[in-house]
């Protein structure tokens, strides 16, 4: 699969990806991922993950270049979410390695040998990755503002003022300025999810993982969340790894679409190609069922 790594030179022209060419970048996103250069950012190297006897990921190999927006599609149980959870170290691979920005995620090199990494190493590498969950997972004991500032203050060591300023900018971006002092339970699902997006971005991650972020929402709330994500996708170079069932959204924001089946990538390509003229019969079958 690694041979399919998109070349940065082939970036679609309708989405300007160089900082100069970007259409008005919101203040809150100005700092997101300044290090984008199209080089390899994420690599899955022969990763296998099993749950009991069930093989979820089977000798999986793929890479994602920095700044790319990649959507993972495929039937449920094909291992898409598992990939995001492996990247977030919520799961550990049974075999193989994952590298992020050239560093092993769950392994360390010690005396020339690869050993399971310690907590500190994992946290260090993981700091570059943010995640938005299907069920939002906001902290119910904290108000909206503190949900966003808590990690920047206590993990990144920002001052309270800096973190709050950052949080307010992000809340403006997601259109929730008037809700700073509410508790998550006082917000709708769509609003909660937008807070969760702001919370993830406040850590200024290089990679943003989106795990079926609209699946838990009432239909009328989906659009608001997707609009925010579209904005972010079109105006920043943050690398995105996205699992979704919203095919129009995927078509809209993706540079690359990977089709998963039974723990392997069976086909990948540009959204135009994948949605209009896929090669693999399984992809055609899947897309005709969901589109």
């Amino acid at each position: 699969m690694s041979s399919d790594t998109p070349n940065p030179a082939e970036t679609p022209q309708d989405k300007p990806r160089t900082p100069e060419g970007k259409p008005d970048v919101p203040e809150a996103l100005a700092h997101v991922n300044p290090r984008v250069d199209g080089s390899e950012l994420i690599r899955f190297d022969r990763v296998t993950k099993r749950f009991g006897d069930h093989v979820v990921l089977d000798d999986l190999e793929f890479t994602v270049a920095s700044g790319k927006h990649v959507t993972l599609i495929g039937p449920s149980g094909s291992g898409k979410t598992t990939i995001l959870r492996l990247l977030m170290t919520l799961l550990k691979p049974d075999e193989g390695t994952i590298t992020v920005g050239g560093r092993y995620l769950t392994h360390e090199e010690r005396n020339g040998k690869l050993v399971p990494a310690g907590e500190k190493h994992i946290r260090e590498v993981r700091k570059n990755i943010g995640m938005v969950f299907q069920q939002f997972n906001l902290f119910p004991n904290m108000r909206v503002l503190r949900n966003i500032t808590e990690a920047p203050v206590h993990v990144l060591g920002l001052s309270k003022e800096e973190a709050e300023e950052r949080a307010r900018e992000l809340l403006e971006l997601v259109g929730l300025t008037e809700h700073v002092d509410k508790y998550p339970t006082q917000l709708s699902g769509g609003q909660q999810q937008r807070v969760a997006i702001a919370r993830a971005l406040a850590m200024r991650p290089q990679v943003l993982l989106l795990d079926e972020v609209t699946s838990a929402l009432d239909p009328e709330l989906v659009a608001g969340v997707l609009d925010v994500l579209r904005d972010i996708a079109h105006t920043t170079d943050i690398t995105m790894l996205c699992v979704t069932h919203e095919m129009n959204f995927a078509r809209d924001i993706s540079d690359d679409v990977l089709m998963f089946n039974e723990g392997r990538v069976i086909e990948s390509g540009s959204p135009e190609k994948m949605f209009n003229d896929p090669d693999h019969p399984r992809t055609r079958e899947f897309l005709s069922a969901v589109l």
């Binding site: 808590e150 993990v155 993830a200 850590m203």
Partner: peptide, 8 residues
Amino acid sequence: EAGIALSF
């Protein structure tokens, strides 16, 4: 998991 995702 949300806490892990924020590197606490």
